[in-house]
């Protein structure tokens, strides 16, 4: 199972210093998040699409991820137009649809898609390991970085343990249904998973102590200079400046 399908690409975006990409993604998404004008958000969406193209991401894989996000956005489209209090309404049979609600839903949709696509192009194109190291170089707390890396490392180990437990239940004829027996079985399963996770953590910590761990982590990661770094910074700066100008109608 490959949980990082975008990280293995070979585009020039992949070769840009991970720290720069993190900063760029952060700045870019803050700009989009606080913008209100469609004149900013529409170009933002286009820039994000451009970024995924430059990172040469598989269009189908990107669309699949977007669809998942659109599922949540669909809820907003149901809720906001009907409940938002504004001045103008569109009467649609017995329903009063708030024009402001529709505008707000559209903005949220645009922002969400643009920001998530930029993260696919800039952040998902690095491995979790690289992300962790880059964050630690950017001064993010060691504890948070370790938490990220360890979570990722043992996610799959725990997933395997979960599947093992489920298989064990299945071979003994367990079929999930809507009854107390099912709920109890799942409760046991989750409980067992917690116990296994705790035991695993204990053993990992023991193994670390055996190798001289005294509470301090050292990192050996390097971020070599590359001409792409300058190109990328320049490009993202132009995009950011352009978006800000659009927002203030200059």
């Amino acid at each position: 199972m490959d949980a990082e399908p975008f990280a293995s690409g070979r585009s020039w975006v992949h070769r840009v210093d991970a720290r720069l990409r993190i900063i760029a993604a952060l700045v870019y998404s803050v700009i989009l998040a606080v913008s209100n004008e469609f004149a900013t958000l529409m170009p933002g969406l286009i820039i994000s699409v451009l970024l995924t193209l430059m990172a040469r991401l598989d269009a189908i894989a990107v669309s699949k991820r977007l669809l998942t996000i659109l599922g949540f956005i669909a809820l907003i489209w149901v809720m906001l137009p009907l409940t938002y209090n504004g001045d103008s309404y569109i009467q649609l049979g017995p329903l009063a649809i708030s024009a402001e609600g529709v505008g707000l839903s559209a903005r949220i949709s645009l922002k969400t898609m643009a920001i998530s696509m930029s993260f696919m192009a800039l952040i998902a194109t690095m491995s979790t390991a690289t992300l962790g190291h880059a964050l630690s170089r950017l001064g993010v707390s060691q504890r948070l970085v370790i938490l990220l890396l360890m979570t990722y490392r043992y996610l799959f180990v725990l997933e395997n343990e979960y599947h093992r437990l489920r298989r064990a239940a299945r071979v003994r004829g367990f079929k999930p249904g809507t009854d107390l027996h099912t709920y109890r079985t799942y409760a046991y399963l989750v409980g067992m998973l917690f116990i296994r996770a705790a035991q695993r953590a204990e053993r990992v910590y023991q193994a670390m102590r055996c190798r001289g761990f005294k509470g301090r982590f050292f990192t050996i990661a390097d971020f070599p200079a590359s001409p792409n770094n300058f190109m990328f910074s320049l490009l993202m700066a132009i995009f950011a400046a352009g978006l800000i100008l659009m927002e203030f109608n200059w």
């Binding site: 979790t128 390991a129 043992y154 761990f213 050292f218 990192t219 990661a221």
Partner: peptide, 29 residues
Amino acid sequence: HRIGLLFQDADDQLFSPTVLEDVAFGPLN
């Protein structure tokens, strides 16, 4: 550190993202 214990389950022992980092963990410590 003068005695090397190989755990029964290698997943307990390897926790770093890459092989080099994991092997370097001990010497760095």
